[in-house]
């Protein structure tokens, strides 16, 4: 019967931590931001979270686009319809790979860094000393990092998709010789702004919210020791990735599953 007790305890802990993270989220979302103080902090974090993630996003987008171009060409040319390759690449990227892969990379590159940074500030009592100075660490430290992650994600996902399409074009048109007019023409006529682009943006907004939330919460809630920080960092990457993949399925079913 031990396992039953263990299961019950784990379930209770899970619910408890969900509750705590919700409370935590409300704690800094509901406060009225002070633009004079908040804006410079946000800009600084946007640089760390967004701009410094650009390299990995651009390189990954390029390679994934090029691979899509190669794979798409071999599959589609069997049916003599390699001119549809532009449409295939664009839809795959805008609907799925753009938001999802960006979120996974973001969790590994920026989310883990946010968790480790906040966790270390907790372990070295920097958060405590902010509190004692009459400065709320939720607003000073956590909120700008959360908003930076939330805002950076859709932009990064858009950049990922654009670079990916360009990479696909390089392989499909420049290398394998698909007619450029049909590459772009097919894409234009089949990608719809509302159902494809907008849904992709909604996905990346949701992923941005979830990944940024998980990252700052894990940092703020970690056990303030080196082992605690390392386990919090791991949790950020694992939970973010699972949440992104799970939510992606749900969102896809709601958006595109008109059965």
């Amino acid at each position: 019967m031990q396992w039953l007790a263990d299961l019950g305890r784990q379930g209770r802990e899970l619910i408890e931590s969900l509750g705590r993270s919700g409370q935590f989220l409300a704690g800094f979302l509901l406060g009225v931001p002070n633009a004079r103080v908040g804006f410079p902090l946000l800009v600084k974090q946007l640089y760390f979270v967004g701009v410094l993630s650009l390299a990995i996003i651009v390189v990954s987008g390029l390679f994934i686009g090029m691979v899509l171009g190669l794979q798409g060409y071999t599959i589609l040319s069997d049916y003599g319809s390699e001119s549809a390759i532009g449409q295939m690449i664009a839809l795959t990227l805008v609907r799925e790979l753009g938001p999802v892969v960006t979120a996974l990379l973001f969790a590994g590159r920026a989310g883990s860094a946010l968790t480790a940074e906040i966790g270390l500030m907790k372990a070295t009592e920097q958060l405590s000393s902010l509190e004692m100075m009459g400065v709320d660490p939720l607003r000073r430290v956590v909120a700008p990092r959360f908003w930076a992650g939330f805002l950076a994600m859709p932009v990064l996902a858009a950049i990922f998709s654009v670079v990916g399409i360009w990479g696909g074009m390089l392989v499909g048109v420049e290398w394998l010789g698909v007619f450029e007019g049909s590459f772009w023409g097919n894409m234009q006529s089949s990608v719809s702004f509302t159902s494809d682009v907008l849904n992709g943006v909604i996905k990346s907004v949701v992923f941005g919210f979830v990944c940024a939330w998980i990252a700052v919460y894990q940092g703020y809630d970690c056990v303030p020791t080196s082992a605690g920080i390392s386990s919090a960092t791991t949790k950020t990457v694992v939970f973010s990735s699972l949440a992104v993949l799970g939510l992606d399925f749900v969102l896809t079913a709601v958006m595109f599953g008109d059965f």
């Binding site: 070295t124 009592e125 920097q126 405590s128 000393s129 509190e131 004692m132 100075m133 009459g134 400065v135 709320d136």
Partner: peptide, 19 residues
Amino acid sequence: LYQLREKMGMLFQSGALFT
């Protein structure tokens, strides 16, 4: 509480400087 703390100073045992 945060307003009250503006009137307090505390020297932490570890220093707790912002790194």
